[in-house]
Design a protein around this nucleic acid. Sequence first.
DNA 1: GGTGAAAACGTTACGAG
DNA 2: CTCGTAACGTTTTCACC
Lengths: 173, 173
Amino acid sequence: MFQGVRLMSNTDTCNDSRRTMELDNQDLEILKILQVDVRTAIERIADQVGLSTASVQRRLKRLRDNHVISSDVAVVEPKAVGQTMTFLLHVELDRDNLDFLVVFKKKMRNEPRVQQCYYVTGESDFILIVTAKDMEDFDALTQELFFDDSNVRRYKTSVVMERTKVSLALPLG
Amino acid sequence: MFQGVRLMSNTDTCNDSRRTMELDNQDLEILKILQVDVRTAIERIADQVGLSTASVQRRLKRLRDNHVISSDVAVVEPKAVGQTMTFLLHVELDRDNLDFLVVFKKKMRNEPRVQQCYYVTGESDFILIVTAKDMEDFDALTQELFFDDSNVRRYKTSVVMERTKVSLALPLG
DNA sequence: GGTGAAAACGTTACGAG
DNA sequence: CTCGTAACGTTTTCACC
């Protein structure tokens, strides 16, 4: 019985609607606006871009269907919800074993206090951006992530004194 | 002539509607949902939280007016718009002079390729998360940011091999 | 905090270029 | 294949309970 994953041959088309999509200037204009405020009325976008609402609508649907827009999120102010501290961690793993990597990444993705996790070149393996309510919360987190049954060789903590710029916006056009 | 910054006395009230607001579990539930998808219909949120749409509506307005929700953004997929590379930079400034700091921060906020900028404790002064179209684009950026008329003592580049987790979501409740 | 009517908004079908 | 117009359905908003 065939239990493996069905792989695509070279000639197959990758049909997960993630193929690169051509974007014209008007698409980019739409993205520029929505990157700053998703709640902008389509009518207003239409005015600004010089298209009808229907056209903007269609483009928007295409942008979302093709995962050019990967998500639409409300950005919450950390201090307003008691997350008063931000840290930046450099993490070095014990081995470059693939299984450990997979386990570690999964752990990061499942931990809400880890906002961001980057696998990088250089001395460290991973760089994490982490929020915590207070020092105690942070200590508990490092305990969970790095001591209890872990393959972390060492880690280095930087305290964020100021979140000078925090965004996911991209340069467009 | 008075040229300094007008400081608030201890007894002044900071009247920018950014004062801490009490959040109950239902507010947190609303935030949890919107953090993942701002486009969730209010009716659906109401169902999930166990309130009427009007109530959710009012809470939402309060959350936005009080900057608990600081913005609503569309997250764009970097690769889809030609931003194929991500870097993490450690930057050390020449002096801890306040004016230099202010100038540097402003530069970071005005540069679209700098997505994030954190002022941190430790060896480095700043940590940047940067996107670029390619190596050439990245080179141009470092040139602009760090060489032309700058107070940067040194910087270190890490190439991001994988954006394992990239979000601005916070742990709530 | 809930209800419901009015208004605003997003969506889709259609015909045109 | 993409546009705009216009009618349609849904969602949000708001005065009132």
